[in-house]
Design a protein around this nucleic acid. Structure first.
Lengths: 145, 145
DNA sequence: CCTTGAGTTGAACCTCGCTTTAACTTGCAG
DNA sequence: CTGCAAGTTAAAGCGAGGTTCAACTCAAGG
């Protein structure tokens, strides 16, 4: 079992293009050692980072946020239990939020089958922003951006 | 209660910039009538469309897919129950997928608190791609792209 | 009328997340 | 050694999803 992976190997194993891997490195999401001839050699641990990156991306988290999260990780040293807890907790909240947004969307969509509400009628999802018609300026749809 | 909204009012009420609303119109996501002087006047129903668009976007659905979904809606005519069912069903699947991905990520992250696995240890989330080390080419992480 | 704020357009520009290209260099097998 | 696949870089390009800008027009009040 060899220690280091070439970029081609990491690309094949992770399913991520080499160009994307180089891009991630520029952004500081992953790192690589260099051979005498300046070629990248990846520790196997990078495979996990890449997997993490792709999964986080899948759920709509930006590379910048992912980098921030990865940065707060053991930079190869002892991973303080507190550091872990902080990272995990912060992410858990973001995930909970996204999950409930999705669940709401799904359920509301379900509730709409056959009722026609998406076009013009009362529907849980659409009302919050609207039933505050009247005249006042307020009534803003405040989605967590 | 006035019928039509100006673009400024729709922007204020929906929390979406005017430029974005014009952009959505170009893409065919929303529509507006015009005054004699060529200004846009929106039906209140557009507010719901906009809310729908932003929520769907939030969960990572592209404007193109959103447009496709909205297109299959009652274009102000009778919304066949079948049309509704088809749209709802298709979206439900996409949402279920996304939800389970998020739940997995959240739970795996939870399981990691304090164990240090994100850096280099065994972790449910990272293993699928890695424990297939050996030498063979296979072992691709196949995320639904 | 005149002014002022709100609206109009097309075109240019921006950020993100990559991919492609050109012009080389390395690593390794024969 | 030669040859060739695999690697390197910087820079340009791309598609999505907008924003900004310049140069106007419209609507409403005084």
């Amino acid at each position: 079992m060899q220690e280091a992976l070439t970029i081609g190997q990491l690309a094949a194993r992770s399913g991520v293009a080499q160009s994307a891997l180089r891009y991630y490195e520029r952004l500081g999401l992953i790192r690589a050692d260099r051979t005498g001839g300046n070629q990248r050699r990846y520790h196997r641990g990078e495979l996990r980072r890449v997997a993490f990156i792709r999964i986080a991306q899948q759920v709509g988290i930006s590379l910048d946020e992912i980098r921030a999260a990865l940065d707060s990780l053991p930079a190869s040293r002892t991973p303080t239990a507190e550091d872990w807890a902080r990272l995990s907790t912060a992410w858990r909240e973001r995930l909970e939020e996204k999950i409930s947004l999705l669940v709401r969307l799904r359920d509301d969509l379900d509730g709409c089958i056959g009722c026609g509400c998406l076009s013009l009628r009362r529907c849980a999802l659409y009302n919050p922003a609207d039933e505050l018609a009247g005249e006042g300026p307020g009534a803003r749809l405040t989605l967590p951006r």
